[in-house]
Write a protein that binds this DNA or RNA. Structure first.
Lengths: 144, 144
DNA sequence: GTGGCTGCAAACATTTTGCATAACT
DNA sequence: AGTTATGCAAAATGTTTGCAGCCAC
């Protein structure tokens, strides 16, 4: 059982509603980084259309519960949302194919330790975003 | 002489204009992270008011020349702009006092090497954003 | 003198909000 | 039943763009 969203909602005094469950479900099954708009689109094709504003409100609540997380993968674009895995703070984005990879945290803890020990800075949240070209796209571009 | 903006502009076929020079000057002297709006404000008090749209267009050109850089230091807010120093990809933001620190790159190159060697991923741009509490603010909050 | 740049205002995109209705508890 | 959440539409925010006149070249 991954995460009982309903229980988490109830535990914090939030009501368990369709939009909230559905938004979470979309993010879970899509297994990717979706904008609020894309989530709303995905839900529009389903049984009952869920409004964009409800998507935003659902995301705000799920974010509050630390069930989802937003990140700005591109410069000017909209925020992208994904399930929150506590140890995945590390986005690797291929600028060629748009693929997004996660890396788990050993480097993140190196950064944490460095700041804590060397600078007496207490880190709460670390975001690492790398843009570049993935192995597959490099293979296509390169000759050898 | 830090950087001859005029020369860089000319070299790329851009014209040397007041707004471009002034926007760069504001960022250089402010020595901080300003939003486009704050830059426009700073220029409004000066001799000739420079429009917000001109600020955006100037920033786009300066970004193109890699003289300035934008970063999303906060979640929903506007982009913040600063001079581009090639080895400063590492933002440390204090959520208490709002202070922004730069760290130079040893950790960044660790990340680069890891991705290149271990994953055949060619990094082009790395952004590290850490939010937390700085030493000064911790001192105020703590007792001992 | 010419073409790129600016200012202005209007358009755009994303996100937030007010209010009446509907739904969870 | 009581309240909180939703849907709709309108507002707020940050950023981009079209166009006429201006300025660097």
């Amino acid at each position: 059982m991954p995460t009982d969203v309903a229980a988490r909602l109830r535990a914090q005094g939030y009501r368990v509603t369709e939009p909230r469950l559905r938004v979470y479900e979309v993010l879970r099954t899509a297994d990717g980084h979706l904008t609020a708009d894309e989530i709303a689109d995905a839900l529009a094709h389903g049984a009952e259309p869920t409004t964009l504003s409800s998507v935003y409100r659902a995301l705000a609540v799920l974010d509050e519960l630390e069930l989802v997380r937003s990140s700005r993968l591109t410069d000017g674009d909209a925020s992208h949302w994904e399930l929150a895995h506590p140890d995945e703070h590390f986005h690797v984005v291929c600028t060629s194919c748009g693929d997004v990879d996660h890396h788990r945290g050993s480097l993140v803890s190196v950064i944490e330790d460095h700041l804590r020990d060397g600078h007496r800075f207490e880190p709460e949240e670390i975001t690492v975003l790398v843009r570049g070209t993935c192995a597959r796209c490099r293979g296509v571009a390169d000759s050898a």
